[in-house]
Simulated scan of single mutants.
Amino acid sequence: MSRCNSGESPLDRFIAVVTWSISTVRPVIFGVAPYNPILGETHHVSRGNLNVLLEQVSHHPPVSALHATDEGENVEMIWCHHLTPKFYGTSVEAELHGKRVLKLQNHGETYVMNSPKVLIRFLPFPWADWVGNVRIQCQESGLEAELCYRNTSFLGRRGNQRSIKGKVFESSSLKTLYEIDGQWDRTVRMKNINNGKDTVIHNAKEVISGLRAPIVKDTREIWASESALVWSDVSRGILSKSWEKAKEAKKAVEEKQRELQRERESREENWVPKHFTVSHSKEGGWECSPIQKWVPEAPIIVPL
């Protein structure tokens, strides 16, 4: 996210935000999900100066809140999101509701964007991937981008797999400035309409090869609600292929949550998120606001 902040002009920064948005898309792994987020579950991680905190702020429906900050760059992102599935016989389409709001506060710019949908097909063979339209807007600079994620045809025989097409344009005049084309899991190019210059803005292989597995810096500072701790026994069972142990560990986690829920109901207490204030309306959906201005450094870090 820091690269989004370093552009010299509003257009440079907007293109960097578009590139960052594309880079956050990862291939969906099709299969059975053994983890079911529990109420109040958190994930707190840092990479360099970027600190990220997620909290499960609702269980029915499942809603997650995210707050990411880089205090040195004065950058902040807030995202309250939840999935709603739609069933179509041989497929399921899950829409990811909730706007990602990225603030480059040194420049007084706010970028608002949605996310593509997850499409799961069962025939003629099972697969899952990202599809649909994404819109990125910056009111301060008057710039917008439209991105369209596509996959193969119904039979899986034609078309470009994991393709992305789009454009960057001026909000007021609708004048197209750049065209975007490529495969988001390989390379994505951007063409300057004015001079015809073509540039690679995203190379998935370089992005993914640069990722490192997170490590625990200080076990004493890990919260009891940390996702890695909550599901540690389940993970150990899966990694050792001890499926029965993983199943029993998952059952124990879920039963503990039911017990806590019964206790709250007996005391007529409502559960309240620890790190966010959350609201919901029929018009605006779910919205969250972080309680702290800056996310603190985490005991789990991703090496640079």
Rank of each mutant, 00 (worst) to 15 (best):
V18S: 02
V25W: 05
L119E: 10
G285R: 03
E268K: 14
K245C: 00
L147C: 03
G72A: 07
S23G: 08
L50W: 06
Y111S: 14
Y149M: 02
G98A: 11
K167G: 01
I201K: 01
G210K: 03
I291M: 02
S240R: 11
N160D: 12
S172Q: 12
T199M: 09
K251R: 11
I201L: 00
A65R: 04
Q257C: 05
E146Q: 14
L155V: 03
T176F: 03
N5K: 02
L39V: 04
E268Q: 15
I120D: 13
P273S: 10
E71N: 15
A246R: 00
V207S: 07
I222R: 07
N36E: 12
I164L: 13
V230R: 09
V207A: 06
R150N: 09
E248M: 01
K293L: 04
I29F: 12
I120M: 14
C288V: 02
L53E: 15
C138N: 08
V45F: 14
L39F: 13
V52W: 01
K86D: 02
T277D: 13
K117L: 11
D129T: 10
S209Y: 08
S232Q: 05
G210C: 05
S279I: 08
L229D: 05
V134K: 02
S46T: 02
K251M: 06
N133I: 08
L143A: 01
S289V: 06
E263A: 13
S235V: 01
P116H: 15
I215W: 11
G210L: 01
I222V: 12
E41F: 08
C138K: 07
